[in-house]
Amino acid sequence: MDYFLTIIILVSLFIILAASFDLIIGYCGLISIAHPIFYAIGAYTSAMLAKEAGVPVPVAMLIGALAALVSSIVVALPSLRVSGDYLLIASIGFQLGLIELAKHFHEIGGAGGLTNIPPFLIREVGREAYALLVVVVALLTVWFVRWMATGPYGRMMSALRDDELAFSMLGRNAIWVKVSVFAIGSGIAGFAGALYAHYFRFIEPDQFGLLASSAVLTMVVVGGMRTTWGPVLGAIVLQTLPQAITFFGLPPSVLGPLQGIMFTGLVLVFMFLRPQGLIAASDLWRGRQEGARHD
């Protein structure tokens, strides 16, 4: 039973990551793959606050999300002011740099990882309650991304993706839209990280690296960018498939690389056979207030 609850929690966490990443890369068209570093910032901040400062876990989690949000602005603002392409470089540099820094920073566990993170809900109520919490946050995230994408912001994000210069000439502040979407998506990832930390109670720098980036990217691409259920489907398929292989009893030395090959392999297969992903997005934006149109 615990195993299945853990799978549900992992799948839900990746739904949160994939849906919030879709907001950034899919809807807003911001090219960055450093999403897991904001997941890490949320996880480490919340874990350290709860463990070392005795901050109540729910408060620590919210501060963790806030820390991810603020640090994402610090990364995005200078690079997006120059050009969209710099975001990819700046964010990867930030991701890899911070991971290296964390490995040499013994106060937060160094390369060996941070252990004994205070648990939340599990002892008092049970694992089921924690699983329910994570599932609810995942559903809220999916709903929120849909709400953003089909409202006034959705129209702006579509236009911004199509033509930033024409968008600016209409009086729209492109940098503000990009930075705010990047910050919101990253803040949500930070909250997911905090949820991870207080369940598994152990985090290490390497789990937030490029392999995690490729996993989240694969989920969005395979599931279907700019769709409500694409990232959900992608997260379910790509989180359960690697689990399924573990039942074959392969040695860990084979299992790790096999999972990595699976992610990249799937992206390649999909790029050739179904570039739009399992669920295809409409190429024409539709707002949610269809009924309110006067015609």
């Binding site: 129209r155 579509s158 236009a159 993706r161 199509d162 033509d163 210069l165 024409a166 968008f167 190429d283 024409l284 934006w285 707002g287 149109r293």
Partner: peptide, 11 residues
Amino acid sequence: RLFPSLSVLDN
């Protein structure tokens, strides 16, 4: 420089 992913009205 119109926005192809938007309808005429949304443009």
